[in-house]
């Protein structure tokens, strides 16, 4: 990329205490099911009561994370707003489906329909911050946040000074059950501490909202680049990684941190072996899904984790590698200055 791009600020709501204060990830205990629920902050300090009363959970989570990111950046109005979400507001989609059945297609409340629209969070951020710039929403599993990030990088190359970008997804109990019917989750209760050595198919479900303000003003962490790969085989992953590093002039041994999406799903974990083997044994590894669980836009929390590590000063160059059930693969390179 011709124009350098930096992470100016970030914010995350996740199953961890990540929204404010210092971040110390915990291996959280699970009791009833393989689902890590997000710890939600108080929303009243972010959203006016007259708006808050109507909003469903994901809208509050997404909007508040975006606002916290802008507060952290001291920038009330971002340039473009570009987000990703795999499922949008499931709670609203489910409510509208149930209402259609319960009330037999008559006298339906419009609010769940409006809020089930995938770009509703984007619209709300723009509305609350009065931002009339470019606004886009990607809805494609493990390429939701990732294409939002690529679009943001394009915006920067085209002259934007800053872009607010993020990803958010929630998991409802209803949708957790639906996905359990086709093998998304581990069938036996598995603790995050044992997730990686479980030796079983499926993942632990998660949820969260993560936002970044990226822009051209020099900052501590540079977003060097990203590369996506759709349904590659093992050789394809290996080749993509080598080309990606070469393109950015980064040698394998320079990478001192790998933030990986390894989630203990024996069907797809072998892809992560490829990235681990390509790097030196000295490279530190963080498997972030132990902390946030698996969801469409978990990759955003991976990038947030890497950002926190670089800001702590412990590492200099981080490679993030994530894929979603073996289909959408993404590499991201961050470097501390």
């Amino acid at each position: 990329m011709e124009i350098k791009c930096y992470i100016q600020a970030s914010a995350a709501i996740s199953p961890q205490q990540s929204f404010e204060g210092s971040y110390e990830p915990q291996l959280l205990p699970l009791e009833a099911r393989n689902l890590l629920r997000a710890q939600e902050p108080g929303y009243a300090g972010f959203i006016p009561p007259n708006s808050l009363r109507r909003m469903s959970r994901l809208l509050k989570m997404g909007l508040t994370t975006a606002l916290q990111c802008l507060r952290n950046a001291n920038a009330p109005v971002p340039g473009a707003i570009i987000t990703g979400t795999g499922r949008g507001s499931l709670q609203d989609t489910e409510k509208f489906l149930h209402d259609i059945r319960t009330y037999e297609e008559t006298a339906l409340n419009p609010t769940p329909f409006i809020q089930s629209t995938y770009n509703s969070v984007n619209g709300l951020i723009a509305l609350q911050q009065q931002c009339t710039d470019y606004n886009n929403t990607f809805v494609h599993r493990g390429f939701s946040f990732e294409h939002a990030l690529l679009d943001s990088l394009l915006q920067i190359q085209e002259g934007a000074e800053s872009v607010l970008t993020g990803g958010f997804d929630e998991m409802t109990l209803e949708h957790f059950f639906i996905k359990s019917r086709i093998g998304y989750w581990k069938s036996a209760l598995t603790q995050p501490a044992e997730m990686l050595v479980s030796g079983t198919p499926g993942a632990i479900a998660g949820e969260g909202a993560t936002f970044f303000l990226i822009g051209t003003a020099p900052g501590a962490v540079e977003l060097m680049g990203m590369q996506m790969s759709y349904k590659p085989d093992a050789a394809g992953v290996s080749e993509t990684l080598a080309q990606f590093l070469a393109q950015h002039g980064v040698k394998e041994e320079e990478i001192d941190l790998l933030v990986s999406g390894r989630n203990g799903d024996v069907r797809f974990d072998h892809f992560y072996d490829i990235a681990e083997k390509a790097l030196t044994p000295a490279t530190a590894k963080i498997h972030f899904k132990q902390f946030c669980g698996e969801y469409d836009t978990a990759g955003a929390f991976g990038m947030w984790t890497a950002t926190q590590e670089l800001l702590s000063g412990r590492h200099k160059t981080a490679l993030i590698y994530n894929h979603f059930y073996g289909e959408q693969h993404t590499f991201i390179l961050l470097q501390r200055h």
């Binding site: 795999g86 499922r87 770009n119 606004n135 494609h140 086709i182």
Partner: peptide, 30 residues
């Protein structure tokens, strides 16, 4: 049909059959 609940399913089936795979994604802005 469970996996067809989201917006990505139709995109990927079309991409796979057409052979358009360098960048694959779906936009939803109403």
């Amino acid at each position: 049909l469970i996996d067809t609940l989201d917006c990505a399913d139709c995109t990927q089936r079309i991409a796979d059959r057409a052979g358009l795979t360098a960048y694959v994604t779906t936009i939803s802005t109403a």
